[in-house]
Design a protein around this nucleic acid. Sequence first.
DNA 1: GTAGGGTTAG
Length: 500
Amino acid sequence: MVDMAIELFIELDDRGLPSDAGMHTVLLKAIVEEKGAAGVLDLIQRCDILRPELFDILCNKSISFLCKKGSPETACDVYVVMKRKGSVVTRKSYYSILEDANYALRFFAKIRECGWTTATIPVTVFDNLTTNGRVLDAYKLIRDMEDNLPRMDVVDYSIMVDRLCKGSHIRKALDLCEFARKKGITLSIVTYNSVINGLCRQGCLVEAFRLFDSLQKINVPPSEITYAILIDILTKEGHLVDARKLFEKMIVLGLKPSTRVYNLLINGYCKMGQMQEGLKLLLDLEVKCLKPDEFTVSAVINGFCRNGDMEAALGSYFDFKRDGHLPDFLGFMYLLSGLCSKGRLEESQSILREMLQTRSVINLLNKVEIDVQTESMEQFLFFLCEQGRIQETITVLNEVQSMFFPVERWRTGAPSGPEKLKEIYDSKAFGIAASKSSLSSYETDMNIKSSDAENTVKNYAEEENRSQLCDFDSYFDHLASLCTKGELLEANKLAKMLTC
DNA sequence: GTAGGGTTAG
């Protein structure tokens, strides 16, 4: 039947009679139903004798139709037929292929097979890939189609660089930075922040600080966020003194630390048991007309709880509460587990009640997908709490906590936590000398201490010894030249150093 | 096939 319809369709055109879009759709539908997607390609080949205008319309329609029906391969085949005939591929059909990231990749593979270059790859292809967790595909596409790229601007690159960093593909992120710069893009501090953050997350502190220092040279001033990233990692690694120096440095440079930056240090001090320092900063924060937030409250509470000083923890909770500042989910959890561990169940219950009425806690609980029928998580917990089943309530909350706040991310292979590092660091005068760059003193001190330091610290020193690069620019040049010379072993070593 | 879209916490 379909064959007859096709013949009729061709005959109509032959007689100069028009056909409309509706008719094309009906025809395509019938063909796919009876012969599958391949039938459409067959149709296109048979319709070679149509008037060129109609042939173009039918082909373009087929491409969109096939994509919609999930047959991108055949759509690409139709595209190839069209290109070979010199037909005009409309934007609509072109984009219907590129809309889907998988289709786009197959499409470009086909194009390469044919030995063609594409007109342009739309930025949306990269957006789609990047936002759908396929940043490596996007990266590969960029590297493969170097000369046929869309006009990507600094933000397009920045998003990709950040995603690559988040996926621990630091080397590729750096490579993309260099690629963008070769394309004439001037990267901004936002992109550098992503890279610095990525390096820190990978434990490559030396490289992170190297990049930080090189920012001055390339005339990109570090922002408040740059400092926040570095202060955070230093704090996490137990280098509180250095973190504090960076904090002071940013103030000297005229960058105003936000509550968020204060929080990093307050949290660091409180976790290290240096409550006095933490509270001093809290005071300073308020002097600077900044407001504590949920994180601040939680950090202070955590500090007192860690010290086992539940009176002080409760006291600060009520003080903050009086001023309209509540802890967040974790802050409440610190307080609750502290109270429970002392067997103070009644107080736990009243704190639990307040917790379960706190907006941010409720918001978090609402994100939990549970199948406890119609009940919401919040109602469920409140019910448990009111029944006096405190321990059970907290058990459930602990589950929630493990979902949203996975265990602290200390680097693997580091056998001990911040306490040990603190000892090491406090034992000698140590810090970022004002006259030197932050990195050079950091490295020097690392080397001095590598004999008695923990593995983590040793690693930095080793990294430093392996690395003979002075700045970001020469890093790129070095890596690029290694790759060009085919010295992949060396390049790999360099890459390994970055991706650890 | 635009314009607006990009970075930091336990």
